[in-house]
Design a protein around this nucleic acid. Structure first.
Lengths: 137, 137
DNA sequence: CCTGATTTGGTATTTACAATGCGTATTACT
DNA sequence: AGTAATACGCATTGTAAATACCAAATCAGG
């Protein structure tokens, strides 16, 4: 059971931004602070913006900031958005599925239910519960 | 959010065996039926046997069969065993973790809790709920 | 007590895909 | 204009899962 680093990074970004609201973070800033790839992080930020979680502004002095208050951002929703294209097991990707028991399988629905339980459990917390404050404040 | 095919195959094996109890399945039999790698499947079977879910017998006429009644095998436990070496996110693998917010991160515990919720939800079902019967019975 | 069938375990190879890098276009502030 | 940033497509890399291969241990049956 694994989440992609894409999702991992997305959560880090949100936690960090919640720690210093009203600041516009550039992808370069965050990449340096986290010591990860700037390019990859830029895509994560794009995805978060596309999901309506961040507001971005181009050009000089631009960057990204939270689109809503941390308490209005539920963690499960974030994970669900960032993991949207991940199939829990093979048979969830109907176009590439080769499982021979697919038509009669009684497991798939239960796995889907468990995945929903995972998200629901995370949704008991909001970003406000996971604010990250940098070293020097 | 993804499970490995290792786990996926393990679940298929158990469901199939529950459909025809008292039969000893060889790795080759199951691999042919599922149209997957025989060698890979052999390791899955090994892992299931090591976890006490299967009894295996070597030699001519050997094979594997369920060690317990299907109703006594909980799906969440199976997944937990087969996914044991999978880190949900980077910081769960403490030896290779590079996340700069690790000491102060308030997310990790919540992710772990959600992972447990996933397993617990699956544990509401047993293998008896997911028996797979082959085409011709 | 062989012989063939099967599991078991280790290692090596292949492959798939996430992760990363990079170049260009686009947008916007100064 | 010039500069600073996002946005986007494509190429490349790296890593881990998936697979293949091989040797050894084990057991049933003649």
């Amino acid at each position: 059971m694994r989440l992609t680093s894409f999702t991992d990074y997305g959560l880090r970004v949100l936690m960090r931004m919640a720690g210093t609201p009203d600041r516009a973070f550039t992808a370069a800033d965050l990449a340096a602070e986290f010591r990860i790839s700037r390019n990859h992080l830029a895509k994560v930020i794009s995805a978060l913006a596309a999901a309506g979680l961040l507001e971005t502004r181009r050009g000089g002095g631009g960057g990204a900031m939270l689109a809503r208050a941390p308490k209005d951002i539920r963690l499960g929703d974030v994970v669900a958005v960032l993991e949207a294209d991940q199939a829990l097991v093979e048979c969830f990707a109907s176009d590439t599925n080769t499982c021979t028991l697919t038509p009669h399988c009684r497991l798939k629905a239960r796995l889907a239910h468990a995945g929903a339980a995972f998200v629901a459990d995370l949704n008991r917390s909001t970003l406000a519960d996971c604010v990250y404050r940098p070293e020097s404040t």
